[in-house]
Amino acid sequence: IARAIIIGHSFGGAVTTAFARQHPQKTLGLVFLAPVSHPWPGGATAWYYKLTAVPVVGWLFSETIAYAAGMLRIGNATACVFSPNNVPKGYIGKASIPLVLRPPAFRANARDVARLYDYVRAASPGYREIKAPTLVISGDRDKVVYATVHSVGLEHDIPGAELVWVANLGHKPDWIAPDLVVGAIERAAGAPVDLQSMASVVESRIAGDAQGADRYPELKVPDAELAPG
């Protein structure tokens, strides 16, 4: 493949920006889905990622506790990721989600997440170098990443980037709005696709979604003073 459209979801947002900066000649376009890309106030990540990244102790945790505890919580955690949208039937099995809990994979993922904040803090000033056509799809009800930090940041920092906000969409546009994602890919390839109209269709389809409304609080950006200097 001489030139490709690179698509990144969540943590994959940071990978996508890295590819675009390191291989501009191979990058035809970029599509970001609920991405992580910028330093966020406080820089916090889940405690189990930090613990797993600790030498020796993290190995013991991942080998003895993480899989069993993760399997007990996998349904609830998945519902939170999708909230307020409904989890597609059979998603956990179809997407092979339990594979991430295998000890070696869990440790590798934990090391990546533990280092993510420092990476995006160093990398994000270079996003202005990116010249590829860029589309960003984000939901205003994302409960996993701060959309107003990352998605808005990409729109601001990458010249010509277009941000498509989708009302009542959570963290999984790849499963909840696949038609919009395909449209963004086509747009990045140069097709005359009206993404705002497509987003309106998605919004109408998911307007009544309220899965987890009483269990998963809205994700609010912490106060700016919590951010490290």
Score class of each variant (00 low, 15 high):
71 M>H: 06
36 V>T: 09
78 T>Y: 09
80 C>Q: 12
211 Q>W: 12
213 A>Q: 10
103 P>N: 11
138 S>G: 10
85 N>Y: 04
24 P>A: 06
108 A>Q: 09
84 P>W: 01
29 G>M: 06
8 G>H: 00
15 V>T: 08
229 G>N: 12
218 E>Q: 13
61 F>H: 07
73 R>S: 12
92 I>P: 06
10 S>T: 08
145 V>R: 04
95 A>T: 08
152 V>N: 07
148 T>I: 11
125 P>T: 03
5 I>S: 04
96 S>H: 15
167 A>E: 11
130 I>H: 01
79 A>L: 06
135 L>N: 01
136 V>R: 00
182 V>D: 14
215 R>F: 10
115 R>H: 14
225 E>T: 15
194 D>W: 04
84 P>I: 00
151 S>Y: 03
224 A>E: 13
69 A>Y: 05
184 A>Y: 02
200 S>P: 03
164 V>Y: 00
156 H>W: 15
191 A>C: 10
68 A>L: 13
180 L>I: 07
223 D>S: 15
212 G>T: 00
174 D>I: 09
101 L>E: 06
13 G>Q: 08
111 R>G: 05
203 E>T: 03
133 P>F: 02
88 P>R: 08
76 N>F: 15
20 A>L: 04
119 Y>H: 13
1 I>K: 13
135 L>P: 00
159 P>A: 01
146 Y>C: 10
100 V>N: 06
74 I>V: 11
18 A>C: 07
127 Y>K: 01
125 P>D: 03
214 D>M: 08
106 F>I: 07
131 K>V: 02
107 R>K: 15
202 V>T: 03
94 K>Y: 13
38 H>V: 01
23 H>K: 11
53 A>C: 10
7 I>H: 01
37 S>M: 06
224 A>I: 12
149 V>M: 05
74 I>F: 05
21 R>P: 01
197 S>Y: 02
145 V>Y: 01
16 T>H: 02
216 Y>D: 03
82 F>Y: 09
22 Q>H: 14
136 V>W: 00
32 F>N: 07
107 R>S: 13
192 P>K: 02
207 A>W: 10
64 T>Q: 08
157 D>R: 05
179 D>A: 12
204 S>W: 08
27 T>E: 02
202 V>S: 05
57 V>Y: 14
124 S>G: 08
54 V>C: 11
29 G>K: 02
3 R>Q: 13
10 S>A: 10
139 G>L: 02
86 N>W: 08
42 G>N: 05
221 V>Q: 14
48 Y>F: 15
68 A>M: 07
81 V>D: 04
156 H>V: 13
143 K>Y: 02
215 R>I: 09
120 V>G: 00
223 D>H: 15
155 E>M: 08
28 L>K: 15
79 A>S: 13
114 A>C: 14
127 Y>G: 00
203 E>Q: 13
76 N>E: 15
5 I>W: 03
201 V>W: 02
38 H>I: 00
89 K>E: 14
32 F>I: 10
104 P>W: 14
34 A>D: 00
97 I>M: 10
170 G>C: 01
16 T>K: 01
3 R>P: 01
210 A>I: 10
168 N>Y: 03
14 A>L: 11
13 G>D: 09
181 V>I: 09
65 I>N: 11
21 R>H: 07
95 A>M: 10
104 P>I: 13
168 N>Q: 10
97 I>C: 05
35 P>K: 07
142 D>H: 05
186 E>W: 11
218 E>Y: 12
